[in-house]
Structures are given as C-alpha cells and as structure tokens.
C-alpha cells in the first residue's frame, strides 16, 4: 500500500529525515517509536502533505501513485488520514458542518452523490458511538475549548467518518489519561480491517498495549535503525533508547 524509499526531508535548513525506508501493507499496524527530535512527526507531516517540509530526495508510493505529487486534500480523498498531534481550534466552524463538507467533497472526488442531511446524520450517529463522543461537542466550534482527550477523540471520530485506507496517528496518545487512552484506542481498533493500514507514531509504549502493532520501528536521527515485532516496544520501554543510540554509534 505504502512504500517509502530513501526519504530525505528538511524544514528550512534542517535536514530531519535522512534516508528513511518503510513498507506498509494493507491490514498491518506499524508503530514508529523514537526519542524526541528523531523525525517521527516530520514523517507524519510529510505523508499528509504539510508544505513547510521539503522533500529533497527519495520517493513515496501510495497505491501505485506518487504521493508527493498530490495536494493535501487529494491525499485525503485518496484515503490518507493524519490524526494531528495538536488538533487545530477553528472558531466559528462546527465539527458537524466541517465533517459534512469534508465527507461530501471526498465523495464528489470519487464520483459519488453527496449525502443528504438525513443519511449524513445517521452515519454520524453510528460513528459517534465508536469513539463515545457526544453530539453537543460536535455542534460546537471545531476543537475550540476542547480538553486534550476531547480533541483526540474528535480526531478518531473524523477518522471513522472518512474511513481512510491509510491512517497515521501522530502521538494520539500523548497527554491522555488512561480512560481517554482506552476510548481512543478502542475506537481505532474498531476501525481496523484487513483492507486498511495504520501507522502509529508514539513516544510511549503504553498505547501499544491497547493498539497492538504488527511491526515496531525505531526512528533515530532521521532513519529507521531497528525494526521488529511488538516485543521490541517492550524492550524499548524496559531499556530506554540509549542502547539503540549506542548500537547506532558503534555501527
């Protein structure tokens, strides 16, 4: 589904990604871990098409297409979804209106009729249950005055509404208490199918007890320096990142 080859990316004059390779297939969950500043969020941003980052080398192929040539909205319409680390507050735009516009623009791009108000609302009600989010929250301005947990739940609600093929969760667990984490993780697990793939970018192993990954990768200094299965996450939790840094230094 997604193939990243030798990806180099910089912001202003700082090279952050320095030759990253990754292969993700449908039905898989990949966790990307790594110390602060290793390039985790940069990877998420580059995949979603954030313009501040410039790709200087390498390629990203998504479902046979050159992802880097697509605008952010085109990527979303092709099924790429980024759950933001810091969801943006937009005063005056309600989540409901925002989602209705988004869902219908995505449908339009696929040659489907827009959903009428009734079908949209019934779809929304069904997805709200997944993430245990209340309609009163969705009537309010997008993320404005939401708690951290509410913002992250809103991200997963949007993911449920858009039914992406490739979801990238950028530190969706950071800052959440265990109850909020459980709700968010349950939502994600219910959205897991054999046809879609999820990349979980996280700083903490705790999330991976709830969203169990098929593969764990350690990102360090802009490259994936170690890959393994979920046991690798446990090892990282026990030993910290220093042994990885030491290994890299030795090599």
């Amino acid at each position: 589904m997604l193939t990243i080859k030798n990806l180099h990316a910089k912001i202003e004059d700082n090279e952050i990604l320095k030759g990253l390779n990754l292969e993700v297939n449908a039905g898989e969950v990949h966790a990307i871990m790594g110390p602060n500043g290793s390039g985790k969020s940069t990877l998420a941003s580059v995949l979603a098409g954030r313009e501040e980052f410039e790709v200087t080398e390498g390629e990203i192929t998504y479902q046979g297409k050159n992802l880097l040539e697509l605008e952010p909205e085109e990527r979303a319409r092709e099924g790429v979804f980024l759950a933001f680390q810091y969801p943006v507050e937009i005063p005056g735009v309600s989540t409901i209106n925002f989602m209705k516009t988004a869902v219908n623009q995505v449908r339009e791009s696929r040659g489907q009729e827009p959903l009428d108000a009734v079908s949209f609302l019934s779809m929304m009600k069904e997805k709200m249950k997944l993430v245990e989010i209340d309609q009163s929250l969705l009537n309010r301005s997008l993320n404005e005055g939401f708690s951290g947990g509410e913002k992250k739940r809103n991200e997963i609600f949007q993911m449920a509404m858009l039914e992406p093929k490739l979801a990238i969760l950028d530190e969706t667990d950071s800052g959440l208490d265990i109850d909020a984490l459980r709700i968010v993780a349950n939502g994600v697990n219910k959205l897991r199918t054999k046809n879609n793939a999820i990349i979980v970018v996280t700083h903490y192993q705790r999330l991976l007890e709830y969203i169990v990954p098929d593969f764990v990768h350690v990102l360090y200094k802009g490259k994936i320096v170690k890959s393994g299965t979920k046991e690798l996450a446990l090892e990282l939790e026990a030993k910290g990142y220093d042994w990885i840094k030491d290994q890299v230094a030795v090599v």
Partner: peptide, 12 residues
C-alpha cells in the same frame, strides 16, 4: 487551520 481542513479532503 487551512492545512487541517485540507488534510480532511476539503479543497483549498
């Protein structure tokens, strides 16, 4: 905020 909206499939 503009990027956020676009990242959900909404045209610029």
């Amino acid at each position: 905020a503009l990027f956020y909206l676009r990242a959900r499939g909404i045209g610029e």
